[in-house]
Nucleic acid binder design. Structure first.
Lengths: 201, 201
DNA sequence: CCCGTTCAATACGGTTGTGTATCCAATACA
DNA sequence: TGTATTGGATACACAACCGTATTGAACGGG
């Protein structure tokens, strides 16, 4: 056993992990507090000892996953910036490897997005997170373009927004029709054209 | 009053309309049968006289909105194919004008997509609808390219998939940050580049 | 005008989910 | 080792929602 100093954080973590899975499976409203507790191996007593309500858990889960994601990115950035390959390989690689489970991530991510579209307070939080995410990508783009002596005729922020839009739109199609649209196919066939059109030596 | 032959279809219609609104506001699971009935001005008795369950209503609503959308498109196609402007204006115009309320459409459309990602039966239905939708767009692309003597170096189906991906991804960003990303901005700045790159005279 | 049918309203029972209050075990500390 | 505290389990009260059974009113046909 780990030094059993305070088990509180451990149960919180397990509850959050359980919530992540259950939310992915049944959606935010479709998952009951009991479902989450069952998945985590606790009873509702443990839940209400750690969170005030399901909404509060959702907020905490959003923060936790957000932090995790940004950490992952920070860890991956140096590798991708320096080592091999083209700019698009780096950017798309970052998008792919930032989240381990594409399907689960897409499910809860869109769930959060829908939630944000309905609750302005959640929207500001989500927008902040997405802004930081875009900033990371923008940094990557800027570093690689400078290193390889490229000039973009379009602000990198705009380009990053496009990449994200394509990535998210394409991911939806890939998840709906896995064999008709292999993951990454749309990105890899069309984004090079865009990049080519907006980059000058 | 209209010939009061059978009021059944009228209440069904009002229930469906109410469901559309309430689903957009609170999501599929978040909306109770009573919510829908309240919105439509009925009681649950009317509901269960017309539908067997909420799931059944969802299916019916999906079919109704789907049919409506395809009708709209069929009506708009001739205009866009012949009259003015460029290919992208036609395609993007179709995407924009097919749905009257972009926000509501995006909300319930995403809701359906999530539902489909979790329920394979729903996925096949959704994929069929999306295939028909893409076919319409593909027809439009083919007609305009032929009429203007263009040749695409990429199958039009692929191009249509890209346009849809960009459109959906961009729409999410526009709805989250309306003033940072005006509707249609990403599409109109980047898609011309793609089209230019894949079209030959 | 009367009778049968249709369809929505009302009334009811049962289930599910939430939140709180209480209990009990394990750990920390003296 | 005894005691206090922490944290999760159990028990309970209550509200929301669902689905059905029954009622009653409007309409349609004769």
């Amino acid at each position: 056993m780990e030094p059993p100093k305070r088990r509180r954080s451990a149960t919180r973590a397990r509850l959050l992990e359980g919530a992540l899975e259950v939310f992915a499976e049944r959606g935010f409203h479709g998952a009951s507090v009991e479902d989450i507790c069952d998945r985590a191996g606790f009873t509702r007593g443990a839940f209400y000892s750690n969170f005030g309500s399901k909404d509060e858990l959702v907020l905490a889960l959003f923060q936790a996953t957000t932090d995790r994601l940004l950490e992952q990115i920070a860890a991956l950035l140096p590798d991708l910036a320096n080592q091999p390959g083209t700019l698009l390989d780096a950017v798309l690689g970052l998008l792919d490897e930032a989240a381990p489970d594409q399907r689960q991530w897409h499910l809860i991510s869109t769930e959060f997005t829908l939630h944000a579209l309905r609750h302005p307070e959640a929207a500001t939080a989500l927008n902040q997170q997405r802004a930081m995410f875009r900033d990371q990508l923008t940094r990557l783009v800027e570093e690689i373009t400078q290193a390889s002596g490229l000039r973009l005729s379009v602000p990198p922020q705009q380009f990053v927004r496009l990449v994200i839009a394509v990535h998210e739109g394409a991911r939806a199609q890939s998840l709906l029709e896995p064999d008709l649209v292999p993951a990454g196919s749309l990105e890899h066939t069309f984004l090079p054209l865009v990049l080519d059109a907006i980059s000058r030596k």
